[in-house]
């Protein structure tokens, strides 16, 4: 019986490992699902908005440590809100200055936002240095939770998971249950008609883009609990994130969740049997093969074009 419980413990921890990867992927993909999935804007600088959130958290953490150590255990919630606001504000500016002029040319948006990502990376490097930094975690995020003697689940992973669920729920409510979400979906499906019925599509675009960037900022804040942040941290995942959104089927939030889940589980299960790089190669190749057979992704809403 002992080997069985040990096997169970390994399976539970391995499963949790996959769930952590899933949360990371989903957090990154949520913002992109709004910006790319709903608006159709290819924002290659999405990873940098994530890094903005991570650096914001780092700055808040160092300031708290220096000036208000008593505030230590609670600073993280403040940092999350601040990350959302800062990343959202910068996103608002970027939409105003750049994206709004390129809606007719999606491929050019891709190149321009890639340029933006280079500029942002170098800005991070100039301000924070090339070395990776990490925020000081509050006491309650460290250590692990042991439901049984052999199972060992890190607390920061649990926290990220909770945050992911909360954020997903909020975005779902906003997109599908609020008047604003209705306007967003209407604008994306038929811009001219939406304008005709009195929706200010320009404002909707700007708000949607800002919201997507803000969500990326929150994701960045969450990442600081798992790993350290460098100037190029965001760009490492940008292609994976795009694949998650495309694989799920653009414009489908449920698809994004399902695709993040399947990619994450496939990768972490394969990592158990082979090297990390081969697991990644096989996962990505499988995604691309499926996309070649089913270009619209896993779940797609039917839109007449």
């Amino acid at each position: 019986m002992e080997w069985l419980s040990e096997f169970g413990a390994i399976a539970a921890m391995q499963g949790f490992n996959g769930l952590s990867v899933f949360c990371v992927l989903l957090l990154m993909a949520l913002g992109l699902a709004i910006i790319f999935g709903q608006m159709g804007v290819i924002n290659m600088a999405h990873g940098e908005f994530l890094t903005i959130g991570a650096y914001t958290t780092f700055v808040v953490s160092s300031l708290t440590e220096q000036y208000a150590p008593a505030f230590g255990p609670y600073y993280f919630f403040f940092a999350i809100v601040l990350s959302f606001l800062i990343a959202g504000a910068i996103g608002w500016l970027v939409e105003w200055a750049m994206i709004s002029k390129l809606y007719q040319r999606p491929l050019d948006t891709l190149l321009a936002t890639w340029g933006l990502s280079l500029v942002m990376q170098q800005t991070f490097r100039s301000i924070f240095g090339a070395r990776e930094v990490s925020a000081t975690l509050p006491e309650w995020l460290m250590g692990s939770w042991n439901p049984t003697e052999t199972i060992d689940i890190p607390r920061n992973g649990l926290f990220v998971m909770g945050l992911t669920i909360l954020l997903t729920a909020i975005i779902f409510l906003m997109l599908y249950r609020s008047r604003w979400g209705l306007q967003v979906r209407a604008t994306m499906q038929n811009r001219v008609m939406s304008r005709a019925v009195g929706i200010n599509t320009k404002r909707v675009d700007r708000m949607t883009f800002a919201l997507g960037c803000g969500v990326a900022g929150v994701a960045g804040a969450a990442f600081t609990t798992i790993g350290s942040t460098g100037p190029t941290a965001g760009s490492l995942y940008i292609v994976d994130t795009f694949l998650v959104v495309v694989f799920g089927g653009a414009a489908s939030l449920f698809g994004t969740i399902a695709s993040a889940f399947s990619i994450a589980q496939a990768q972490s299960i394969m990592e158990f049997f082979m090297s990390g790089s081969m697991a990644k190669v096989l996962t990505l190749s499988a995604v691309i093969l499926i996309l070649m057979m089913r270009p619209q992704g896993l779940f797609s809403i039917k839109v007449r074009k």
Partner: peptide, 9 residues
């Protein structure tokens, strides 16, 4: 980065 943005826009 500036080159990318300027050329496209």
């Amino acid at each position: 980065g500036g080159l990318f943005i300027a050329v496209v826009m």
